[in-house]
Design a protein around this nucleic acid. Structure first.
Lengths: 296, 296
DNA sequence: TATTTCACATAAGTTGTAATTATGCCACAG
DNA sequence: CTGTGGCATAATTACAACTTATGTGAAATA
């Protein structure tokens, strides 16, 4: 361990300017203070670092050797301080976010755009993963916060904040036009060719569970990886798709798809911002949540 | 300028061990002292560097960023201290010496050999130059000390210390055997083919001046670059060579060369160690001079 | 669920040390 | 030969860092 780092700072400035008086000026202390510090340093190292003369100081061999190291070391620390300052000023930094396709596309994207515009120095790193995996990333500290869709198993020290509602809907194209505006029973779905998301998604397991509870067991014709693809399949009349409404919104409006209606409401779900309550957020993450109007 | 470098040392150890208590142990101060220093550092930077918990501390994003710099910087300074220590222990260092061929060969060499054996870590850098140039090197601080042959112009703040006598002699081979044991006059040299060193050496200019003062002007047959070569020429009976006795010693003893004797003594010269009185010597140079039994 | 333990924070009081002022010394320049 | 600039030294002051004692919270343990 180095005895007194302050001495090295004094030495750094003295060597840099070749003058005790000048160093004192830079350090904003008196000249004798510098002289004494240098003396202390030399004493503690047991070596003469500077040749004193009436027109300044000059490094000895040992002094030169030491200075070559101290110079690099001190400036390294100095630039570390500068980097932290930049981070504080949001000129530098990273925000790690976990989000699913869905939350990213229909909720997060505009905020990220705005954030990036305001703070171009901050890297935004989005890890695209389904809800349970996102929660794991949060627990392990790999992301600052996540945006997931309900429902999910909320473990303790996870703070959740719902930001908007989403609805799961069944949509179909003209081949199934006879079902339009009819009040249907969920049972009737069993007779129709269904297009669903794959099993590993929260949307799928939510629907599976809900329908099972209603006594309906579906065996989808198609199991696709993305909601977009489901919409495309539905448009081509390959079956009845189950997606969050936002994915189909455009086509529902234009009439190319219609929404099936049921005699029972599918309980609404929500997008939820989740974060670890035991971890303080980096400034950049805080600022992004502010933009998203999430109270911390 | 960084406000208090000591804080960074505390931060370094705390971050390194992820524990305030552990850092306190390493720093050999109390735990609250560390806590307070960290608090001060955070306050001065206006940023939280550590997440405190009941089982240690963890770096925040800012802390990690800072640590990556402080780690390098601190260790850089630490290794600088280590290097200086090595230099003190003579495990590391350089000695810069200025010397002529002659002084190197007939005086310095055995000391250098001994020195190098004792301190293999020290680089010995010999700058081979004639006397006036060596003195210049000394003035400009490019060498720690020099070994030259007298006479020379001793400027102030040069300390000289004569270490042994040398004699200039005239030597010849059997072709000139008739001159052996005769007491000669310097004038007689004018009739003989002479072998001398080139003009730019102190030996040559010394002899030129001395002989001129005796009313003798020589026009050597041969002007050679090295004394060794003069001896070789003399051995082959190409003329009478003028060298410092040491160069011919071997052949004088074996009888292959003999020394011409004169009715007047050529004043003896000397090897002299010269150093700048206004400059403290590096430890390594001091030690070498000690080995050479020069008092400082 | 209560209890102990561990790690860090806080508070108050006491050094200890690093700063200041004042002065001295030396070398060089005018 | 004196003035100036630059560093060292001495003595005093003042601040800051350290210590002891205690508090707090979380996690492990009973």
């Amino acid at each position: 361990m180095i005895s007194n780092l302050e001495y090295f700072k004094v030495f750094y400035y003295t060597a840099k300017y070749g003058s005790v008086t000048r160093a004192a000026g830079e350090l904003m202390i008196s000249q004798p203070a510098v002289s004494q510090s240098l003396k202390q340093l030399e004493k503690s190292l047991g070596v003469t670092l500077l040749e004193r003369s009436s027109r300044g100081v000059k490094l000895t061999g040992e002094g030169q050797l030491l200075y070559s190291y101290v110079e690099k070391g001190y400036e390294q620390i100095e630039s570390g301080v500068e980097k932290v300052r930049q981070m504080q000023n949001m000129e530098l930094g990273e925000v790690h976010i976990g989000a699913s396709d869905m939350t990213l596309r229909f909720y997060l994207l505009p905020f990220l755009e705005k954030f990036h515009e305001e703070y171009p120095g901050i890297k935004v790193i989005v890890t695209n993963a389904p809800t349970p995996e996102t929660l794991e990333l949060l627990q392990s500290g790999k992301i600052d916060f996540g945006v997931v869709s309900t429902p999910f198993e909320k473990e303790k020290d996870i703070t959740a904040f719902e930001v908007r509602e989403i609805e799961d809907v069944f949509v179909a194209g003209r081949r199934f036009i006879s079902y339009k505006n009819k009040m249907l029973d969920f049972q009737e779905l069993e007779k129709l060719p269904m297009i669903f998301l794959e099993n590993n998604t929260s949307t799928r397991s939510y629907m599976d569970e809900y329908l099972a509870q209603e006594g309906v067991i579906l065996r989808p014709e198609f199991e696709l990886a993305t909601s977009d693809m489901i919409v495309q399949f539905a448009l081509r009349n390959l079956g009845v798709g189950c997606v969050v409404r936002d994915f189909a919104a455009e086509y529902l409006e234009s009439g190319m798809l219609f929404e099936l209606r049921f005699n029972r409401m599918i309980p609404k779900r929500a997008f939820s911002v989740v974060r670890s309550s035991r971890q303080t957020l980096p400034e950049a993450a805080k600022r992004l949540l502010e933009i998203m109007e999430i109270e911390l």
